[in-house]
Design a protein around this nucleic acid. Sequence first.
DNA 1: CTGAAAGCGCTTACAG
DNA 2: CTGAAAGCGCTTACAG
Lengths: 354, 354
Amino acid sequence: MPENAGRAPTQRDVAAAAGVSTATVSYILSGRRDRATPVTPETRDRVLRAVEQLGYRLNHSGRSLRRRRTELVCVVYRMPDNPWVERLAEQVQTIGATSGYSMIALPLPSSPPTEPAAASRPQPSALRVLRERYVDGAIVANGTLIEPDELRRLAASGLSLVVFHDALEPAGFDVVDLAQRAALTDLVRHLLGRGHTRIGYLAHDVELAAPDDEVQSLKYRMVAAALAAAGVPLDPRLVVPGADVRERAYVETQRLLRADRPPTALISASDRGAIDAIWAARDLGASVPGDLAIAGIGNGTEGSAIRPALTTVGLPKLDFTVPVTRLFERIAAPNELPGDRIPQPWQLIVREST
Amino acid sequence: MPENAGRAPTQRDVAAAAGVSTATVSYILSGRRDRATPVTPETRDRVLRAVEQLGYRLNHSGRSLRRRRTELVCVVYRMPDNPWVERLAEQVQTIGATSGYSMIALPLPSSPPTEPAAASRPQPSALRVLRERYVDGAIVANGTLIEPDELRRLAASGLSLVVFHDALEPAGFDVVDLAQRAALTDLVRHLLGRGHTRIGYLAHDVELAAPDDEVQSLKYRMVAAALAAAGVPLDPRLVVPGADVRERAYVETQRLLRADRPPTALISASDRGAIDAIWAARDLGASVPGDLAIAGIGNGTEGSAIRPALTTVGLPKLDFTVPVTRLFERIAAPNELPGDRIPQPWQLIVREST
DNA sequence: CTGAAAGCGCTTACAG
DNA sequence: CTGAAAGCGCTTACAG
């Protein structure tokens, strides 16, 4: 039981209890410079015992104010998380641990309250963590979550930053380019090459609610652009919502198939929706891909487990060693690295469903 | 463009640029005590212009060292997130914002590398955020993630703490009691009351890999205990894995139904697995609940959307105002509140599938 | 209405 | 091998 009433013990209290100076306590606790100024084992023991007895805990603010670094990095993403964000976070933790860094997350709300376009940007209070030097560096898993100008200002103010974004110029930070547009174009070409001309799209609800929102409707816009570029513009009657909720994806797919001129191929904004679409088609007696070719987006883990295995676009494997290592290089050498583009391309993964 | 080479500008730089003292800068930026010491609009403007021009950003470490508080709270949970953790995080953000608090997350890895029991506890580097006063308070969404002793030490060291846990004594922190065991007991009684005696269990894989791990196998252990208490111990042949992966839940359910003496009721560790089980049964020509009653655990959003609507146990509604408000009360009055038990009971939600 | 000064808890070159 | 002292960037009672 600590005896100090109220106030948490400091290194000063530890030093007093152990009969040494605060410098000695600090050397022992931070483990630095042990070689240059070795401490006798007895002193060390006495200090550690005092730490234990007082229940002393290091004060991070004091340390980082003095060291001018927080030894903390942050992963920014939109809720809900998904396997690739989890993998990214895991690698940030693992790789960071080797240089004494810990990781925190900054999950931004999935469904902003009102006005889609503006509200899809995070509140200032969430950005405080990035703006006020709470962390030395950050990986933004979805660069569209934060205004480009804000990203540039953050980088200029000394925050080490690596941003996943398809269409942003590096500017004091690195940009991991997933080349999503190219992959979706490949997918469209693949379907056209199989002879499909009536291609439907199973959308995230928010995409249809705010089709012009670059943040929320990214996939919809990219698919539509790829189809238009190929001379087969998306037929509005073949666009339905429901990719988010299993039962609705099922119902909407059956509605499409029962319509006058059903599509012969369907792209779903999510792998999950695509899988539901496969079930829906099968239950109507339609064969996949015979009667309806179905493709997902994202390359989630489910897609390769089902039959027919799902054609999709996404990262071929979940390895973010390059961007994560880059983040820590930036932190180690602040203001020395310009801004690079790091290619980590999505790819077309053709399986059985198309 | 900031002109300081290297070093980030401080309030001192701002004060110099605006021709005032650092005290004035601080008053203007922190917005406190404006009533007692109003600043002339001209001074204010001059300071804000200097802030803009220098690209000044507040240094959190300096502020929180001085204020002796970080104005930051943390939500601790196990990856992946789920709708209720998201809702919790959202409410922490919203309620915290009214008193100037920001939220960060501490997502702990979902599948620890090796040794299940020990490895299911987080690494020390993850706990640094809680131990070293990086935040003023935390909500632990799953109290089994952190050792009880560690929780007590954290609370004793002054961290405001609210922990979701079914079987922990409050000790300087509050415990939100979901009463999961009682709800699962209700579910078992409900099935027995419908005449079922052969009740199967669709498990999370990790539950069968480490059935003795209290952290990972919570639901499995509670269901087994409830069945045993009712005099109908769980038949090992009716326990199958696969609740995590859609296709496997489907296959395992069909395997159960094709066996010699199939179960007449099935409890799934996840709502998702239960929904897959419904599809699997239906595809074999078995009616739900006629031939097989199926219940989930968790009360996720999908369960009420499907047909037959899913019987499940979980929180009847996602409102964490009480525990979240309590966290901020604790932060406002440190060391004054003892430790309370906050009931937020899971409930049996009977729908059509049983 | 504004400024000089102390101090939050730590780290680290430097002197002994 | 150890300690006295300065200083990281803020805030705030206090004096003017």
